[in-house]
């Protein structure tokens, strides 16, 4: 009850020539590509650099390209790549640190620029049912706090890797960053805060740089739909300009 798989991993270091290394590994049927990479590291080459933490698509660290497409290998079953090689390369549009590890620092600085908070009130099919009593559980004195949850975006950087604009303008704020601005805009009613957020989006390297290839949205493992956020931001910015122009 196990799968034989060949991994072809792009290896690079600042002091070395880039090359592809091939690893033959055996993994259980239920394994995902990340497990296979970990096996290659554990049994073949302890110098293989890759990022991983949660193994369930919540931390966003492990994002790579599998056979050319951006994926989270922690939720990409090995059996989907039945037979043949699995080619694994680091994300595009990020500086490479080593092997599959890329430098995500500029990306996280952009994410932080909008003060994007990673939790939000629930808004799924479980919504509107009830409220949680967090402090002390005393229903009389406790504030009635709505259920909260983490945002869908795991900040994996996949959308930046898939984005063709990102390849041409690496100062582009990026789909995730713009989606974060939109989320934050939805969470606040403060006029100054809204102004600041829209100003951030309405930049030379902001929303107007998107040229509608939709790759961010197609590649997103968490169905965040960053393109929709970008277009919605444009709408808001245009509405604001319209109002200003006619002094409404």
């Amino acid at each position: 009850m196990s799968l034989q798989v060949t991994l072809k991993i792009l290896r690079s270091r600042p002091h070395q020539e880039q090359r592809y290394d091939t690893f033959d590994v055996t993994v259980p049927d239920a394994a995902n590509v990340l497990d296979a990479i970990e096996q290659a590291w554990a049994h073949h080459d302890r110098d293989l650099m890759f990022r991983h933490a949660c193994h369930h698509a919540s931390c966003g660290t492990c994002a790579v390209r599998i056979n050319g497409r951006e994926k989270l290998p922690c939720i990409a079953p090995v059996k989907d790549y039945d037979g043949g090689e699995i080619k694994i390369e680091p994300l595009r549009n990020f500086p490479i640190v080593g092997d599959l590890v890329v430098d995500v620092a500029p990306f996280f600085q952009n994410q932080e620029a909008s003060d994007f908070i990673i939790t939000r009130p629930t808004e799924n099919e479980l919504d509107g049912k009830a409220i949680a009593h967090t402090q002390g559980l005393d229903p009389e004195s406790a504030p009635t706090v709505p259920f909260n949850r983490f945002e869908n975006c795991v900040e994996c950087g996949i959308c930046l890797s898939a984005c063709p604009t990102m390849s041409a303008d690496y100062k582009f704020f990026g789909p995730a960053g713009l989606a974060a601005i939109k989320r934050q805009l939805d969470k606040t009613t403060d006029a100054n805060e809204r102004e600041k957020l829209l100003h951030l989006a309405d930049d030379e390297h902001g929303v107007w740089r998107c040229h509608s290839a939709w790759e961010c949205t197609e590649a997103c493992p968490q169905s965040v739909f960053p393109a929709e956020s970008i277009m919605a931001l444009r709408k808001e910015i245009n509405a604001q300009r319209f109002k200003k122009f006619f002094r409404l």
Binding site: M49, F50, R51, H52, A53, C54, C59, T61
Partner: peptide, 14 residues
Amino acid sequence: RGEIASGTTGRNHC
């Protein structure tokens, strides 16, 4: 030796 929380902590139950 690897990424932050790439051992037990990462793969915990949250």
